[in-house]
Write a protein that binds this DNA or RNA. Sequence first.
DNA 1: AAATAGTTTCAATAATATTTGGAAGTACAT
DNA 2: ATGTACTTCCAAATATTATTGAAACTATTT
Lengths: 166, 166
Amino acid sequence: MELPEAKEKFIQAWGAFGSQWGINRSMAQVHALLLISPGPLSTEDVMDQLNISRGNANMNLRALIDWHLVDRILKTGERREYFQAEKDVWKVATHITRERKKRELEPMVRFLGELKQTSGNTAEVKAFKQMAADLHDLTGRIDAVLERSTRSDVQWFLKAASTLLR
Amino acid sequence: MELPEAKEKFIQAWGAFGSQWGINRSMAQVHALLLISPGPLSTEDVMDQLNISRGNANMNLRALIDWHLVDRILKTGERREYFQAEKDVWKVATHITRERKKRELEPMVRFLGELKQTSGNTAEVKAFKQMAADLHDLTGRIDAVLERSTRSDVQWFLKAASTLLR
DNA sequence: AAATAGTTTCAATAATATTTGGAAGTACAT
DNA sequence: ATGTACTTCCAAATATTATTGAAACTATTT
């Protein structure tokens, strides 16, 4: 396969994959484009290559910066901002994991904890509280595993080990 | 908190959580309702409790069966079908993980593998192939971890161990 | 074999999420 | 301080996705 086709397919696939996981398609596509671009791109480059509006490009670039997946680059003597993706896929995975953990998983764990206090003793209440407790336990464990596996020291260790074992 | 309020909040929260992760809100809500119901429910029960249409209830119940999260129950002497959620949250997590792995992650791993064959030697092609290779490696490792951690024997072992360690 | 009770399908509709494009804002240069 | 080059915001338009509801279908009962 030649580059232009591969590039296009990759951007489409990354966008579709993202939207299956609740990440907006454009944000994933902008990320894909930056991931495979050797150098930093300007907002206009992104607009042109993905055929999206300035507002859309800008909004998603900011969101990606917010997720720590993209850095703002200022070239000396140029006013325009450039954007560059974090290329280390381990870091990418870590940042995505930590953000979603913080924004979505942790609030769910807290909420399930609260539900365990529901009052009553009927069969229905018991089934409810049991489920809340089980889910609280499960999500808490998942949270703990993700916490450990995305700690920067563990990251460093895992990456080094897996390079050696390659 | 009293049951009706807790129930309502749980269904809403599970629905919102699901839709953040690319699972349709109604499907997650039907699942939530069945998870906290002590016995099996009929399509009508689901329709009434969630205020959704028959088509919607039916479609999502079938989808949940497809995901191995819900079983069809036939009561003797009754024509109507009943539905009951798998209550073991470890199994729930396993089934969700395995389905998404199969439907979404595995195709992505294969696709990234293909992209590594892109032809060319420019800086742009090299950056592209490097990223494809790195992502292929990363997604492949994640796939392997999920494969191992959702094997039914491992499930059994983990569940037993974590009960002992509680 | 007709009536009944239930399930499934799917085109139309509604709800939700995304995208646009222009106006407002900001900061640098002249 | 005005013009210029750019960024950000946001209400309106569009696209996408989910939901409805009624008709078609299937299985059971009389």
